[in-house]
Design a protein around this nucleic acid. Structure first.
Lengths: 217, 217
DNA sequence: GTCTATATTAGGATAGAC
DNA sequence: GTCTATCCTAATATAGAC
């Protein structure tokens, strides 16, 4: 995916970047199979041919978009876990950050999940994104960090034991699922957009307690 | 979607049904946009033209498949909630049933979620499926049932108050998300298929306790 | 680097024989 | 009711002018 060399006209910002941004929006709301090169071109304000000039094929463009999305997904959350040390503090912060982020990018979870279901080989891109991140902030891996923070509280007698993987999956499930399943939940709970916003607001306030209570001795 | 009248040759079972079964499998693993009529025909062992004979368009076929999937999704879970009365008993049973069901149909959550993200109008089919079910078993709606079971325990002082919608979303999140996100989790946790199976087995044993503990006073 | 015009293929849909 | 053959549009991709 080497970027073409040579100067850009770039009246209006870097073109390659504009295309990537547009592709990001389109792929995420339509899914990879449902996305149309024409729609991406329109959204980027350029001609279809330019997409091929920069990315050669739709498939490569899709890979680039997935890459970008995967690498930003866990960045902030990892920072918090790597930075803090007490779960009483890190869990609520992670939940806040997650739910804020997801409120702003509601299509992302659905995109990532269906993309991975249909192209399991993309999971590898995830692993690499996590490795990159670890190198960048010089942290050990997520599982180990969480494992240590759990161990600290278990030793202090303030938490029941739980494996780090179940801990992480529980946390991720409770934060991410409501956004991934938003249309389904709205239908089942009989609420509209405003109702969903209220639901999330309430959830922000109550979820950390729910989660931490579950692990009291 | 009226089924054509007249006799069938049906050497080998009802053809319309065979097509629907094949479509089900293909739509669920490829997504609606990614599914190909040819692949469905191959999988059903018939010619492409027959799909159009029975279902006219791909879009109608997709609707029929979604309908079918949506209506079976919550059937067994609703039965349990409608049947039992004490959350101490219904929650573990619902979790067991859910995780068993999802282990057997791993693509379903991803399919439903991405389908609803891309066609929010399908949410209506959900509402109807729920209504049908309520009529069939003569129960009141899920939210009310759960609300009552929560109220019973809160009054008895054995549970902290929680709204029925947050309760249901928490339960659904913890059960469904790990399957919807299976490829992502395998990648993040660094496990293979066997590892995932072990993870779920352990989860089956520990999740009910996690959930019920979260609501102790 | 960006466009217009065009090639090429894929895929949904129909006609008509049996 | 099922097939073969064909149509037609939509969508990816390329050629070539500017």
């Amino acid at each position: 995916m080497a970027k073409p060399s040579g100067e850009r006209h770039a009246r209006d910002g870097d073109t390659e970047q504009r295309i990537l941004d547009a592709a990001h929006r389109v792929f995420i709301r339509r899914g990879t199979a449902g996305a149309r090169m024409q729609e991406i071109a329109d959204e980027a304000g350029v001609n279809k041919a330019l997409l091929h000039y920069y990315f050669r094929t739709k498939s490569r463009l899709a890979t680039a978009v997935f890459q970008r999305t995967a690498s930003t997904l866990f960045a902030r959350v990892l920072e918090v876990f790597a930075g803090g040390s007490d779960l009483d503090e890190t869990v609520p912060r992670v939940m806040q950050i997650y739910m804020d982020q997801l409120s702003r990018t509601p299509y992302v979870p659905g995109y990532i999940l269906s993309e991975l279901n249909q192209h399991p080989e993309r999971a590898q891109q995830f692993v690499e994104a996590l490795h990159d991140f670890r190198r960048k902030i010089g942290a050990t891996d997520l599982l180990t960090i969480v494992q240590q923070q759990i161990q600290a509280r278990v030793s202090a007698g303030t938490m029941r034991p739980i494996t780090a993987d179940q801990f992480i999956v529980n946390l991720a499930s409770l934060c991410i699922f409501p956004f991934a399943a938003r249309p389904m939940l709205m239908s089942i709970l009989g609420i509209d957009d405003a109702g969903f916003a209220r639901f999330i607001k309430k959830r922000r306030a109550t979820l950390p307690q729910f989660f931490l209570h579950a692990l009291r001795p």
